[in-house]
Simulated assay, not measured.
Amino acid sequence: MSAQKISPLEQSMVDQGMLHVQDSIPSIWVELKYATTDNFTGVVLYDRMLNAYLHPLALQKLRKAQTILQKSHPGLSLLVYDAVRPLSIQQKMFDVVKGTPQQAYVANPSKTGLHNYGMAVDLTICDEKGFPLDMGTPFDYFGKAAAIRDEEGLVEDGLLTPKQVANRRLLRKVMTDAGFYVIQGEWWHFNAVTLENARKNYQVIE
Rank of each mutant, 00 (worst) to 15 (best):
K71G: 02
T112A: 15
A192R: 03
G143F: 14
L32Y: 03
F190A: 11
S77V: 03
Q4I: 13
L62F: 07
G136T: 09
N201V: 00
Q11G: 05
G136S: 07
K173S: 14
V193Y: 04
L69K: 06
Y141M: 08
Q90M: 07
F139G: 00
M49K: 08
A198L: 05
Q70C: 03
D95N: 15
R172I: 11
Y53K: 02
R169I: 08
K200E: 15
G136P: 12
V204E: 05
P74R: 01
V155C: 13
L87I: 09
A178Q: 02
S88C: 12
Q4E: 15
Q66P: 02
L78Y: 02
L76W: 07
A35D: 07
H55T: 00
Q11I: 05
Y53P: 05
G130F: 11
Y117G: 00
L114K: 06
L19N: 02
A145F: 04
Q90D: 11
L32S: 01
Q4G: 12
L133P: 09
V21R: 01
G130L: 13
T37D: 13
D38P: 01
T137R: 08
L19W: 03
M18A: 12
T176M: 15
S7P: 02
Q103A: 11
D15A: 13
R169P: 05
Y202R: 13
K33A: 04
F190Q: 10
G158S: 13
Q11P: 02
E152G: 15
I125T: 14
V165H: 12
K111T: 04
S110D: 09
L114F: 10
S88N: 08
V44H: 02
V155M: 12
K92E: 14
S7N: 08
K163L: 03
P138E: 07
P86K: 02
Q164K: 09
L133W: 05
R63H: 04
V182P: 15
N39D: 05
Q90E: 14
P162K: 04
S88F: 06
